[in-house]
Simulated scan of single mutants.
Amino acid sequence: MRMTNPGPSASPTRLYTDLLIRCIANTIYRDAPQDPWSGSSYSDTVRAEGRDWPSRAHSMIGVKRLENLRWAVETVIREAIPGDLIEAGVWRGGACILMRGLLAAHGEATRQVIVADSFEGLPCPDPTRFPQDTGDTHHQFSELAIPVDEVKEHFAAYGLLDAQVKFLKGWFRDTLPTLRGRRFALVRLDGDMYQSTMESLENLYDRLSPGGFLIVDDYGAIPACKAAVDDFRAARCIAEPLQWVDWTGVWWRRPRDGA
């Protein structure tokens, strides 16, 4: 499954952001996956769905979720939803690179992209506090530990490393509380675990502007992530329906005042 070619009559903004998505997902050079489950060769369908761990691409979330992110960012720009953009759990930085590229393409010079990650992989599970993470093995995958300097190099390769990008290094329980003075138009969560997802929701959702987007990457793929989202929504009486992007990604919008 390849992206639809917009054709030469498309706007420069659309052509640029399409090219960004193709580069970030590496559907151009079609790099082989490095995971043990998706086979040893590249597949357009697998990459579109974000079902592999690419060996070279800057994101593993796939074309469909990148296109959804583009639509959400362009919506908050068009509707003037106030606030910055943040991803909690960034791997090689691809989704954040796309967000920064979209701000540049639309002339948005005041919003920042917050790149939040331990840059050391995922934490060991804490089954005492978060029993839903019992047996979780994400911390054992060295492929998920991408140093912050390497992520910065990826931004620089696209010409998008500047003052509108802020790196927030450390465990979410320590770093996300420091953002309490910020307002966000879009929050994207890719923390895999119950703990990471819940800590992100508890620290970021109240900062999300009315009309802003809350996007979760692993809802359909990881039961612990789904449990955290479901528990948080139930505790907060959030009634907005979840919208599916593909087999795992979901989103909803925070209701506007009076809605």
Rank of each mutant, 00 (worst) to 15 (best):
N203A: 13
R207H: 12
A224S: 15
Y205G: 08
I215S: 04
N203L: 05
N203C: 09
D231W: 08
W247Q: 10
R233N: 11
Y194I: 06
R236Y: 00
G220T: 13
V229F: 01
I222S: 06
L204M: 05
A228P: 12
S209A: 15
R182Q: 05
D230R: 12
K226S: 14
D231T: 03
S209D: 12
L189E: 11
D246T: 03
T197I: 03
D246S: 10
A235E: 11
L208Q: 01
V216A: 11
V245I: 12
L201I: 09
R180A: 11
R180Q: 15
D206K: 02
L176Q: 06
L208V: 05
A227I: 14
T178W: 04
T175Q: 02
L201T: 02
C237Y: 08
L176P: 06
F232Q: 08
D218Y: 11
L179S: 01
A221L: 09
G191C: 14
F184P: 01
C237A: 14
L204C: 00
R207V: 10
L176V: 02
D246L: 03
L214S: 01
S209H: 01
L201M: 09
Y194N: 03
D231K: 04
I215V: 04
F184E: 06
G181L: 03
V245N: 11
G220D: 12
D190R: 07
A221R: 11
Y205I: 08
L186P: 01
V187G: 02
L179G: 06
P177M: 03
G220Q: 13
R233C: 14
S196Y: 06
N203F: 04
M198D: 03
A234N: 13
A228G: 09
L179F: 02
I238F: 01
S196H: 08
E240V: 10
C225K: 01
L189V: 15
L176C: 05
V245H: 01
F213E: 01
D231A: 15
D230K: 14
R180Y: 00
K226H: 14
R207A: 11
L214A: 05
D231Q: 15
D206Y: 00
T175C: 03
L201V: 06
A185I: 05
I215M: 09
E199T: 06
Q195N: 11
D246I: 07
L208S: 01
S196K: 05
S209W: 02
N203H: 11
F232G: 14
G181H: 10
